[in-house]
Amino acid sequence: MNSLKFCADILADYGASESEILELLTYNHNVFAPPLLEQLHQPQSESYLATWEQYAKNAATVGAYAALQPHLVQLQFPIMAGISETEEYRAATRKGKSTTQMKTATGLTLFQPEQLQLYIYPTLAGGIPVLVAGNRPDFTSLVQALTRRNEPHPVPDSMGACIVAGYNNWHRVHQYQQQWLLENQDHQGDWAAEFQRLIKRPELYQDRFILLSRGAYSNVTATDLGLDEQTWLELSGKIRLEHECTHYVTRRWFGSMRNNILDEIIADYRGMINAIATYRADWFLHFVGLEAFPTYRQGGRLENYRGEPPLSDGAFKVLQRLVKNAAENLEKFEQEYRHAVRTKPEEMAILMALTTLRLEELASEQGVSLIETAVNDQKKLIFNAHEIETR
C-alpha cells in the first residue's frame, strides 16, 4: 500500500502531533528495493568467499585465531586508546604495510583464543563467513578491533552480534598483486597504476563477515522467558545467527541494511523461525525492552534504533506503540501461516513481503491482511521468475 496519507492517519490515531508525524514518516521510510529476479533462483556467493573458505580450512587444523591473525591486520594490534592515529597502525591498515617490525603490533589479546570458531554459513543469498567468540570479553575485543579501529569504544550489553561490511582485506590485495606481477613480469613498474584500478573494484578486496557472541540474546535472561539456561543459550545462538544473516540478505537482495527497527523486526522474525519454528511477540518485546508496555525498559535494544537524528521523546513513545502492535500482528499472521510447508520459496516470499511494508502498515488494524496480501504477491513474483528461468 505505502500510502503516506494512510500512514499519517495511523500515526495521528496513535496520538502523534503534526511534528511527530513528520518525524515518524521520515524514520519509517522504506528504502528496500525490489530484488533482481535472477538473485532469487541462482544465489551466488560473493567473490571473497573462496579466500574465507581457505581460512576456515586452515582453522580446522590450527584454530580460527591462528588462521586469521596473519591475514586480518587488526588482529595484529592491541586494543588501546589512540592507536588508530599512530603512524604504524595507519600504515598497516591503510597501506597494507607489513607489521613484522612494528613495535605497536603486539597482537590482539583474547582470553580464549582457542575457543574462537570460524565457519561458512549458507544464507538465502549465498554463503557468508561467521566468527563466534568464546566469551563476552573476546567478542567485545573483536568488535573493537574489526569495527572500531582497535579503539576501546564501549560495546552495548544488548549487542550480541554485528556484520563487518566493507572490510579491506590486505591479504587479498597482496594475493592480487602477486598474481598480477607474475602475469606482467615485463611491466612490474606499472603496479602503482594497476593498484589505482583495483581500488575502483571493491569486490576484489572488500569482505563481509559476521561476528557472534555466545551469550543470551539481547541480554535477556532465561528466567525472563521461562526457559532453562542451557536451552536459552542454544536458542540465542540460532536466533542471533539467522538475525545477522537476514541483514546480510537484505543488503544483497534489497540494497539496504540499516539501524532501523523495521530491519530488526524482520531479522528477529527470521531468527525465531530458525530457532523455534514460530514467532513470539512476547519474546520480541523482551528483546527490545517493551515487555512491560507501556513502560519501556531503559537499556532495551529499541533505543539503539532511535534514528539519526534521534526521534524526539514524543515520537519515540509513538514508535513503541507501533512496534508492539506490529509484533502482535506478525504473531497473528504466523499463527495462521505456521501450518504451511516451510519451503525455501515460502521463506523467501515472507521475507520479501515484509520488506515491501512500512512499520505503520505492519502496526495497523489491517496489518495481518496486508502481510498476507504481500506474501501472495511475492509468491507470484517468485513463481514467474522461476517460469522465466526454466524456459
Results as ranks from 00 to 15, higher is better:
V155A: 03
Q115H: 12
A165V: 01
M159K: 08
P122M: 12
R338Y: 00
R149Q: 14
G307E: 04
E291M: 07
R149T: 09
L131I: 11
E46I: 11
S84L: 07
G289T: 09
Q366V: 09
R201K: 13
Y48D: 09
A59D: 11
L36W: 06
G15L: 08
A222Q: 10
L262D: 00
D207Q: 04
L302P: 08
Q378H: 08
E114K: 02
E360Q: 10
V368G: 01
A91L: 13
S17R: 00
E20R: 02
E264A: 10
E234F: 08
N260C: 12
R94P: 13
E372M: 07
P122F: 10
A59C: 08
E85S: 15
E20F: 03
L311N: 00
E46S: 14
Q144A: 02
L241E: 13
K380Q: 06
E387M: 12
A56C: 06
K317M: 09
P78M: 07
A12S: 12
K57V: 13
D313S: 12
A60G: 15
R240P: 09
R321Q: 13
R358C: 11
S312T: 06
L225T: 00
E23W: 00
L110H: 01
V164A: 03
N169W: 13
A125G: 12
N274A: 06
Y205A: 03
Q179H: 15
H286N: 08
R358V: 12
N168G: 14
Q177L: 02
L233Y: 08
L302E: 04
E18T: 09
S47Y: 15
K103Q: 11
A374K: 02
Y167C: 03
R321L: 04
T93D: 01
H286R: 01
G299E: 07
L68E: 02
R321G: 14
A161Q: 03
E20N: 07
N376W: 03
H71F: 07
G82R: 13
Q39R: 11
R208E: 15
I239D: 01
T221M: 05
I120R: 09
I120T: 13
R208T: 15
V73F: 01
F111Q: 12
P35G: 00
P137D: 04
Q378K: 09
L381W: 00
T295V: 14
R90S: 15
A267Q: 02
T231I: 12
D9P: 08
Y89S: 12
A340D: 10
Q366T: 08
K238G: 09
Q177Y: 03
Y55E: 09
R214H: 06
E38G: 15
Y337W: 07
Y337G: 01
P310A: 15
L235N: 07
D263W: 10
I273F: 03
A281F: 01
L142T: 11
P152E: 05
A133Y: 06
Q196G: 14
A222S: 11
S213F: 05
A327S: 10
A145V: 07
L290D: 10
L72N: 05
E346M: 03
Y217R: 05
I350T: 13
W191N: 04
G289P: 02
P113I: 01
T93C: 03
L110N: 02
Q196A: 15
N376P: 00
Q115N: 13
Q69W: 02
H174R: 11
S218W: 02
L49H: 05
G299C: 04
N304F: 06
S364F: 00
L181I: 13
Q366K: 03
S256G: 04
Q54V: 15
